[in-house]
């Protein structure tokens, strides 16, 4: 459990960090919850590790009224830890789904150190955040020494452990909408007993009006190579009264057409079925919280 030699830099500004990674073969260290174990096992042996933890700019969590979403946006600095997001009064009031997802990640130690930017950039197919970010239709703000761009989360995450992130690019912040009043939300997860990663995790947001479900967003993690939005479920539930039967009918489509993963903790069949169960649970709780 001893890593190979590597050069270590801890820049204090974003500019400095971008210049360092532009040189190539650098790995960016955020919270280190994925990178450090890989390095200790020597499955990863970067020549150069650029530690972002001293860049204060990347830790900010703030609201921006005119930002990326019509109702306002929350900007979560890439280095905001899971604990900070789970416990932030701002996130809890303006985007409670994200706080709920964060509180379900790993264990206390992981949440104290792991970051939203690191987790998103790693794109682990069983990470919790992507389910929430899909349901929130979040955006990822990326930056290089030369310029910036913003990608919707479903374009940012490309495949298992693969993102649209270029080698010289950093995740600067994750942008989520300020939640519309009355939106119900829920994150429901079947945790793998060893690591706590999601066997499946389902995030849901719903709105109701005049006895009808008017808005549904469902994000699923753990089932496949990458997290996705269960649009079939959304369409089936929208316009219904949101009864238990409506929920069951919609949730039954949650795993449809998806190439499900198998590992020693759960077969593809079980994952598929659990996706339906946890989708129903997430929708049920979200609807009970909507008003």
């Amino acid at each position: 459990m001893i890593p190979q030699n590597f050069e270590y830099s801890a820049p204090t500004s974003l500019k400095e960090a971008l210049a360092l990674i532009a040189k190539g073969d650098a790995k960016v260290l955020a919270g280190g919850m994925s990178l450090i174990p890989l390095m200790k096992l020597r499955l990863a042996a970067p020549e150069h590790v650029v530690d972002l933890s001293r860049i204060a700019d990347l830790k900010s969590v703030h609201e921006d009224g005119k930002g990326e979403f019509p109702g306002g946006a929350l900007h979560l600095g890439a280095l905001a830890t899971h604990f900070e997001i789970e416990s932030s009064a701002l996130v809890r009031s303006k985007c409670p789904l994200l706080a709920e997802v964060a509180s379900n990640i790993g264990d206390v130690q992981v949440r104290n150190v792991g970051t939203i930017g690191g987790s998103t950039a790693h794109a682990d197919p069983a990470a919790d955040y992507p389910a929430g970010l899909m349901a929130l239709e979040a955006k990822v703000h990326l930056t290089t020494a030369k310029g910036e761009r913003t990608l919707p989360i479903d374009q940012f995450i490309v495949d298992a452990l693969s993102t649209a992130l270029k080698p010289n690019e950093l995740v600067r912040e994750i942008i989520v909408p300020v939640e519309t009043r009355g939106t119900g939300f829920s994150y429901q997860k079947l945790a793998q007993p060893a690591s706590g990663f999601a066997v499946v995790g389902v995030a849901a947001r719903v709105r109701k009006s005049a006895g009808k479900v008017t808005f549904v967003r469902v994000g699923v993690t753990g089932l496949a190579g990458k997290a996705f939005r269960a649009t079939r479920v959304e369409k089936l539930l929208e316009g219904t009264s949101g009864s238990a039967a409506d929920i069951q009918k919609a949730a039954a489509q949650a795993a449809e057409g998806v190439d499900a993963n198998t590992d020693l903790h759960a077969s593809a069949d079980y994952r598929r079925q659990m996706t339906k169960v946890f989708t129903a649970r997430a929708l049920t709780q979200a609807l009970s919280r909507a008003d």
Binding site: L41, R42, P125, A126, A160, L161, F197, G225, D263
Partner: peptide, 17 residues
């Protein structure tokens, strides 16, 4: 080897990828 010992959780999705 190490891949088998510690990589089980991700083997399937990475192989597919």
């Amino acid at each position: 080897g190490t891949l088998a010992g510690v990589g089980q959780r991700l083997l399937d999705s990475t192989a597919k990828m």
